[in-house]
């Protein structure tokens, strides 16, 4: 049974290997393992022998107006073949542009043309990997005009056209809703339950630059309103593998496990109900 998992960090390799929590799994960014060799790959291999693994891509740039980078896709395929993850995911965002890479998840106007391009890119990714992938909703900071579809309809169309699934980041929904002024509950309630294959929970912070924006920092514990939204989501759709994402200001393993255990405990009654 796969319940709640943790983003795996190199400083926690030893504890991740020996931890005996039931249902625990790990997620990594494949970009951090795209090397010819090295101790990180060896550590991941050892952990994978004991735990399910998810590969969560941050750099394929599916929302760029360009084909996914062939070398990147080939490197991803090698990792998928080697580590046999139970989930492979990417973002509804772009980061590459004319040969340069901006290490961030950038927004775009959700036009019909963008949908056609991104659906083609998701299709290329799935074809190259020979499997279904999950696409994650981004955190948004800039109100754009020119959208033909709202984000939920865009994601639904992507699912319908490519057969991909969705990774719902509840913190991203909370952050985007706050930044762009819509209701997070309305957004979550409209997502197609059957398409959702994974849930992310992470922490955010107010903008240090002094604006009203919330920043998806992955540098703090999951906020209470995000836990509340999570409760609402799993009560509606049922249990899903749920990840605590932490990428900055990383505490010790036990602190992260406490958050992970909270998600696992919330999943438990939902799991029982689903199996009743």
């Amino acid at each position: 049974m796969i319940t709640a998992g943790l983003g795996l960090k190199p400083q926690h390799y030893d504890e991740a290997l020996t931890c005996d929590a039931e249902g625990l799994w790990f997620e990594v960014h494949p970009e951090n393992y795209m090397s010819a060799g090295g101790p990180r790959l060896a550590a991941l291999e050892a952990i994978r022998e004991r735990r399910p693994l998810s590969l969560h891509g941050v750099g394929l740039s599916l929302a760029a107006d360009a084909d996914p980078d062939r070398e990147h896709l080939a490197a991803l395929k090698r990792l998928v073949d080697r580590f046999e993850p139970f989930v492979v995911s990417e973002h509804l965002a772009w980061s590459t542009h004319r040969g340069q890479h901006q290490p961030d998840l950038l927004p775009f106007p959700r036009t019909h043309a963008a949908l056609a391009r991104i659906a083609a890119n998701v299709g290329r990714m799935q074809d190259a990997l020979g499997r279904k992938v999950l696409i994650e909703n981004p955190s948004l900071y800039l109100p754009l005009t020119g959208h033909d579809l709202d984000e939920v309809d865009f994601l639904k169309a992507l699912v319908a056209q490519t057969g991909c699934g969705l990774l719902v980041d509840v913190n991203n929904v909370f952050v985007s809703a706050s930044n762009l002024g819509y209701r997070a509950e309305t957004y979550l309630d409209a997502l197609p339950a059957e398409a959702i294959g994974e849930i992310h929970l992470a922490g955010h912070a107010p903008d240090e630059g002094g604006s009203d924006l919330l920043i998806d920092t992955h540098g703090a514990p999951v906020a209470e309103p995000v836990w509340t939204l999570y409760r609402r989501l799993i009560d509606r759709i049922g249990p899903r593998p749920t990840l605590i994402e932490r990428d900055d200001d990383i505490p010790d393993f036990a602190t992260l496990m406490a958050e992970r255990d909270r998600a696992a405990a919330m999943l438990e009654p939902v799991l029982e109900k689903a199996h009743a």
Binding site: D104, L142, P143, L144, G209, S211, L213
Partner: peptide
């Protein structure tokens, strides 16, 4: 052409940072 009327400078700064 793509910026909503209420788009401040802060959003772009977040991406930049």
């Amino acid at each position: 052409p793509w910026l909503a009327p209420d788009a401040g400078e802060a959003g772009l700064s977040v991406y930049r940072n």
